[in-house]
Design a protein around this nucleic acid. Structure first.
Length: 171
DNA sequence: AAGAAGATTCGCT
DNA sequence: GCGAATCTTCTTA
């Protein structure tokens, strides 16, 4: 969830990808830099990075300090503040609001200002416990990477229209 | 010091 | 389907 003066936005996470230690496709693979330093924080912190000159992506760190690993949030199902998300994303189609890592971040209004914050603490941006999905959790290879493509490290809610990727990766 | 590729998305053809 | 937008880091000269 994300609280801002303009309102609260919240979504249910329906798709993630893991980037584990020693993963050649991970940003932490070549060591710590100014850009990825927050990826090396204690688990539960936000790592926000800018990619392709256009979009931000949001990760949650998943290891002890200094390791450098995390989980990329790839898609959310909008739950609260939908009107605000529609304004930020310039679309009213529900499945276009949070389907994709760049879209999700824009819908929630997350930016580089949120890089490194504690998602389990008392900030504007945090992870909340919600109702557990009744749907099955699917597994697949990760999307959009060119190294370590065989690793099955993507997890998603089966059959959800809010999950990104081609149809056979949503079933 | 300069060029290329990357955990992406959008608009036009 | 292809190219644009344009940041960070790695590779090569």
């Amino acid at each position: 969830m994300h609280d801002l003066p303009e309102g609260r936005t919240a979504g249910r996470i329906v798709e993630t990808e893991a980037y584990v230690p020693g993963d050649a496709s991970g940003h932490a693979y070549r060591g710590q830099t100014a850009r990825n330093r927050s990826l090396f924080l204690e688990r539960g912190h936000a790592y926000v990075y800018f990619t392709y000159g256009m979009w931000h992506c949001l990760n949650v760190t998943s290891e002890t300090p200094g390791v450098g690993a995390g989980v990329l949030l790839r898609a959310i199902e909008p739950v609260e503040g939908i009107a605000l998300m529609e304004r930020r994303r310039s679309t009213t189609r529900p499945y276009d609001l949070g389907r994709g890592p760049g879209r999700l971040v824009q819908a929630l209004g997350v930016g580089r200002a949120d890089d490194g914050v504690d998602l389990c603490g008392a900030g504007n941006l945090w992870l909340a416990h919600g109702a557990r999905s009744a749907a099955e959790i699917g597994e697949s290879v990760r999307i959009g990477i060119t190294r370590e493509t065989a690793a099955v490290l993507r997890f998603y809610e089966r059959g959800s229209p809010f999950v990104s990727g081609p149809r056979h990766l949503r079933a």
